[in-house]
Write a protein that binds this DNA or RNA. Structure first.
Lengths: 173, 173
DNA sequence: CGCTTCCGTTCCGTAAACGGAACAGTCGGG
DNA sequence: CCCGACTGTTCCGTTTACGGAACGGAAGCG
């Protein structure tokens, strides 16, 4: 993650709107020096600065972050998972991932904290996953669910890469 | 956007993973004072700091920030759905939504094209949904699936708002 | 040509974010 | 008990991001 990438993004967004550095700085309530340095990537902006600028540009924070950065949490050799959303309610915290499982490799994951459950909906391919000693199998459209406080495994069945959504549920303790 | 919100999220994500402040600080290469202040919302972290921490937690920045308003969202009488992702493979096109269903109202949706299926994973609340003449029910953690080429309905059971993920599968014709 | 009014960059004193060290509190063993 | 290893917070000197002011350049106009 390069601050220069963020800077280029800000400058592009500003120029799309046809407003000058000076006016954006004034509207966002930051110094021109700050904005200049931000766009050049020569500063390391604070959350407050970034928020002031993005709010004025009318874009979500994510617009500043290059795609590759938003990219995968690599669990390991077979599985790549991208976090789509974190969701908290009174009982638990949920993390929704989009998951891909490459064929030909079995991946083992260590146990999570007690009470954590995983829910998988398979989009494409055939997935074998679950507790390492008793994995379950689901074809495209299928759904798997297990308690993940024991070591567990993921594997694609056959030659096709598996695409799925993975929901991790962390109970509030 | 409140820095305290970001702080609480970081702390929640860290505790979900069961690692201490000290070790996360060491792994992320930031000072313990920095991380402590960040989690308390008493500091105004720099991009560099945020990136070091989120990278170590394995989450994109998105996870730290309140819902950006730029995503396509569909509102109905009871259902609010946000499109998270669209992807296509050889057999079908998929749309993944995050869905909220307000209590007290039943929402009817017209039939989709033949062969379209819906897959719902419930995060919170109890959902009754499916073909209008034979809806299915699922509690938090449950999963529903139906062929949606007939009119279908969505409703929250009880007083609690339902949160769920909705996968629409459109077969290639 | 001056003069004005913008543009974006650079300079600079101040405020604050940074990491290291010192701190009190807690847990588990000998 | 005492000890060591750990937790998270606070203190503090150094580094640096901050905004205001000064700067050089480029137009537009008389």
């Amino acid at each position: 993650m390069d601050p220069a990438v963020v800077g280029r993004r800000v400058r592009a967004l500003r120029e799309e709107r046809g407003i000058s550095l000076s006016t954006l700085a004034r509207l966002a309530g930051v110094g021109k020096a700050t904005l200049s340095g931000l766009e050049h990537g020569t500063r390391n902006p604070t959350l407050e600065t970034l928020w002031a600028v993005t709010a004025q540009l009318g874009v979500p924070f994510t617009a500043l972050l290059a795609e590759p950065t938003a990219e995968p949490t690599v669990h390991g050799t077979a599985v790549t998972a991208t976090l789509l959303e974190v969701f908290t309610d009174t009982d638990a915290t949920y993390e929704l991932y989009r998951m891909r499982v490459a064929p030909g490799v079995v991946q083992l994951s260590p146990a999570h904290a007690p009470g954590v459950t995983e829910h998988v909906t398979v989009f494409a391919g055939v997935l074998r996953a679950g507790p390492a000693d008793a994995p379950l199998t689901a074809p495209a459209g299928g759904h798997l669910r297990w308690v993940s406080d024991v070591p567990h495994s993921y594997a694609a069945v056959g030659e096709e890469e598996v695409a799925a959504s993975l929901l991790l549920r962390y109970p509030r303790h």
